[in-house]
Amino acid sequence: MHGEYKVPGGKLVVVDLEVRDGRLDAVQVSGDFFLEPEQALDVINAALTGLPATADEDAIAAAVRTALGADVAMVGFSPEAVAVAARRALA
C-alpha cells in the first residue's frame, strides 16, 4: 500500500506499508525531504510500525512526534505530513 503527500511549500512524503492483523507493518517512509540526524528515518518507520490500521492522523502524528524527540530536525515535512501520507496509503 502506497501513499504520497506533497507538503505545500515543502517536500514530498511517501509511505509504503502493509497491514498485518490490523496493524501497520513493513513501514517505509521516504521522500525528498531533509532529516537530521539521518538515522531518524528508522525511528519514524519504527514509530508507525504496530499502530492500529484505524489510527487517525492525530494519533499517527503524535506517535512520530513522541518517538523523535526534540533534537531531530525535520526540514520540508513534519509528523503531520507523515500522518497524511500514511492515511492515504491506508485509504
Binding site: 511517501v14 509504503d16 517505509q28 521516504s30 521522500g31 525528498d32 525531504f33 532529516l35 539521518e38
Partner: peptide, 9 residues
Amino acid sequence: IGRFQSLRN
C-alpha cells in the same frame, strides 16, 4: 538520489 528517497520509487 537523495538520502531519504526510495530507490524503486
